[in-house]
Amino acid sequence: MKIALTVNAIECEMEIEPGEILLDLLRHSGYKSVKKGCGSGDCGACAVLIDGRAVNSCLVFAAKADGRTILTAEGLESDGKLHPIQEAFLEGGAVQCGYCIPGMEITTLDLLTHNPSPSEEEIREGLSGNLCRCTGYVKQIEAVKQAAKMMSGGSR
Protein backbone atom coordinates (compact mmCIF):
# COMPACT_ATOMS: atom_id res chain seq x y z
CA MET A 1 0.00 0.00 0.00
CA LYS A 2 0.99 3.60 -0.52
CA ILE A 3 1.08 6.26 2.18
CA ALA A 4 1.58 10.00 1.94
CA LEU A 5 3.43 11.71 4.75
CA THR A 6 5.71 14.57 5.59
CA VAL A 7 9.13 13.70 6.95
CA ASN A 8 11.35 16.53 8.16
CA ALA A 9 9.28 19.03 6.21
CA ILE A 10 9.49 17.05 2.98
CA GLU A 11 6.23 15.72 1.61
CA CYS A 12 6.62 12.24 0.22
CA GLU A 13 4.85 9.07 -0.77
CA MET A 14 6.12 5.74 0.39
CA GLU A 15 5.26 2.22 -0.62
CA ILE A 16 4.78 0.03 2.44
CA GLU A 17 3.64 -3.38 3.50
CA PRO A 18 0.66 -3.19 5.85
CA GLY A 19 2.56 -5.04 8.57
CA GLU A 20 5.58 -2.85 8.39
CA ILE A 21 6.95 -0.93 11.36
CA LEU A 22 7.60 2.80 11.17
CA LEU A 23 11.11 2.36 12.58
CA ASP A 24 12.07 0.06 9.71
CA LEU A 25 10.43 2.28 7.13
CA LEU A 26 12.27 5.37 8.31
CA ARG A 27 15.63 3.67 8.53
CA HIS A 28 15.10 2.08 5.16
CA SER A 29 14.28 5.50 3.74
CA GLY A 30 17.61 6.84 4.94
CA TYR A 31 16.66 8.35 8.29
CA LYS A 32 19.38 6.52 10.13
CA SER A 33 19.23 8.72 13.20
CA VAL A 34 16.26 6.59 14.21
CA LYS A 35 18.05 3.86 16.17
CA LYS A 36 16.87 0.44 17.15
CA GLY A 37 17.82 -0.41 20.71
CA CYS A 38 15.21 -2.88 21.89
CA GLY A 39 12.20 -3.26 19.62
CA SER A 40 9.87 -3.24 22.63
CA GLY A 41 9.37 0.41 23.47
CA ASP A 42 11.73 0.32 26.43
CA CYS A 43 14.74 2.35 25.34
CA GLY A 44 13.50 5.32 23.33
CA ALA A 45 16.39 5.23 20.84
CA CYS A 46 13.85 5.15 17.99
CA ALA A 47 11.81 8.13 19.18
CA VAL A 48 10.39 10.39 16.48
CA LEU A 49 7.73 13.06 16.58
CA ILE A 50 4.40 12.26 14.97
CA ASP A 51 2.35 15.43 14.68
CA GLY A 52 4.50 16.97 17.38
CA ARG A 53 4.36 14.15 19.91
CA ALA A 54 7.25 11.84 20.68
CA VAL A 55 6.57 8.16 20.08
CA ASN A 56 8.69 5.05 19.93
CA SER A 57 8.68 4.27 16.23
CA CYS A 58 9.31 0.58 16.96
CA LEU A 59 5.76 0.40 18.35
CA VAL A 60 4.00 2.14 15.48
CA PHE A 61 2.84 0.58 12.25
CA ALA A 62 4.09 2.44 9.22
CA ALA A 63 0.51 2.58 8.00
CA LYS A 64 -0.33 4.90 10.87
CA ALA A 65 2.04 7.50 9.48
CA ASP A 66 -0.31 8.07 6.54
CA GLY A 67 -1.24 11.72 6.42
CA ARG A 68 1.02 12.56 9.34
CA THR A 69 3.99 14.79 9.93
CA ILE A 70 7.11 13.07 11.15
CA LEU A 71 10.22 14.65 12.58
CA THR A 72 13.45 12.72 13.08
CA ALA A 73 16.69 14.03 14.56
CA GLU A 74 17.94 14.72 11.02
CA GLY A 75 15.21 17.32 10.75
CA LEU A 76 16.15 19.27 13.86
CA GLU A 77 18.68 21.51 12.14
CA SER A 78 17.41 24.44 10.18
CA ASP A 79 19.33 26.60 7.71
CA GLY A 80 22.44 24.61 8.53
CA LYS A 81 22.22 25.64 12.16
CA LEU A 82 21.93 23.24 15.04
CA HIS A 83 18.67 23.23 16.94
CA PRO A 84 19.11 24.67 20.47
CA ILE A 85 18.54 21.18 21.86
CA GLN A 86 21.37 19.78 19.73
CA GLU A 87 23.57 22.67 20.71
CA ALA A 88 22.84 22.18 24.39
CA PHE A 89 23.62 18.46 24.19
CA LEU A 90 26.83 19.21 22.30
CA GLU A 91 28.03 22.06 24.47
CA GLY A 92 26.96 20.46 27.72
CA GLY A 93 29.04 17.33 27.23
CA ALA A 94 25.88 15.21 27.31
CA VAL A 95 27.09 12.86 24.58
CA GLN A 96 29.17 9.75 25.09
CA CYS A 97 28.57 6.82 22.76
CA GLY A 98 25.79 8.81 21.17
CA TYR A 99 23.43 5.96 20.34
CA CYS A 100 20.64 7.28 22.57
CA ILE A 101 21.12 10.91 21.64
CA PRO A 102 18.84 11.36 18.59
CA GLY A 103 15.92 9.78 20.47
CA MET A 104 16.65 11.82 23.54
CA GLU A 105 16.71 15.05 21.54
CA ILE A 106 13.35 14.19 20.03
CA THR A 107 11.75 13.48 23.39
CA THR A 108 13.28 16.68 24.76
CA LEU A 109 11.63 18.60 21.93
CA ASP A 110 8.22 17.17 22.84
CA LEU A 111 8.86 17.93 26.50
CA LEU A 112 9.97 21.51 25.94
CA THR A 113 7.24 22.24 23.40
CA HIS A 114 4.56 21.29 25.90
CA ASN A 115 6.38 22.57 28.97
CA PRO A 116 8.85 25.33 28.08
CA SER A 117 10.39 25.62 31.55
CA PRO A 118 10.21 22.24 33.21
CA SER A 119 11.42 21.57 36.74
CA GLU A 120 14.16 19.01 37.18
CA GLU A 121 11.54 16.49 38.25
CA GLU A 122 9.51 17.17 35.12
CA ILE A 123 12.64 16.72 33.02
CA ARG A 124 13.22 13.37 34.65
CA GLU A 125 9.62 12.29 34.13
CA GLY A 126 9.74 13.46 30.54
CA LEU A 127 12.92 11.61 29.63
CA SER A 128 12.30 8.46 31.64
CA GLY A 129 11.66 6.51 28.46
CA ASN A 130 15.07 7.25 26.95
CA LEU A 131 17.67 4.90 28.33
CA CYS A 132 21.32 5.83 28.32
CA ARG A 133 23.94 3.39 29.55
CA CYS A 134 26.99 5.68 29.35
CA THR A 135 26.40 9.06 30.91
CA GLY A 136 24.45 8.52 34.10
CA TYR A 137 22.09 11.22 32.73
CA VAL A 138 23.63 14.04 34.80
CA LYS A 139 24.84 16.13 31.90
CA GLN A 140 21.71 15.36 29.92
CA ILE A 141 19.52 16.87 32.62
CA GLU A 142 21.74 19.96 32.53
CA ALA A 143 21.55 20.04 28.74
CA VAL A 144 17.75 19.97 28.78
CA LYS A 145 17.70 22.84 31.27
CA GLN A 146 20.08 24.78 29.03
CA ALA A 147 18.02 24.00 25.93
CA ALA A 148 14.89 25.24 27.71
CA LYS A 149 16.63 28.54 28.40
CA MET A 150 17.88 28.87 24.85
CA MET A 151 14.50 28.04 23.33
CA SER A 152 12.66 30.55 25.46
CA GLY A 153 15.08 33.18 24.24
CA GLY A 154 17.09 33.32 27.43
CA SER A 155 20.81 33.79 27.58
CA ARG A 156 23.06 30.91 26.68
Binding site: D24, L25, F61, A63
Partner: peptide, 16 residues
Amino acid sequence: MSGEKEFVQHLQHLKI
Protein backbone atom coordinates in the same frame (compact mmCIF):
# COMPACT_ATOMS: atom_id res chain seq x y z
CA MET B 1 10.03 -5.99 1.13
CA SER B 2 13.72 -5.40 1.16
CA GLY B 3 16.85 -4.67 3.09
CA GLU B 4 16.68 -4.44 6.79
CA LYS B 5 13.00 -4.35 7.52
CA GLU B 6 12.53 -6.98 10.11
CA PHE B 7 8.92 -7.05 11.00
CA VAL B 8 6.77 -7.68 8.05
CA GLN B 9 3.67 -9.63 8.72
CA HIS B 10 0.92 -10.27 6.26
CA LEU B 11 -2.05 -8.38 7.47
CA GLN B 12 -4.51 -5.69 6.58
CA HIS B 13 -4.42 -2.37 8.30
CA LEU B 14 -7.76 -0.59 8.13
CA LYS B 15 -8.40 2.93 9.29
CA ILE B 16 -11.84 3.01 10.83
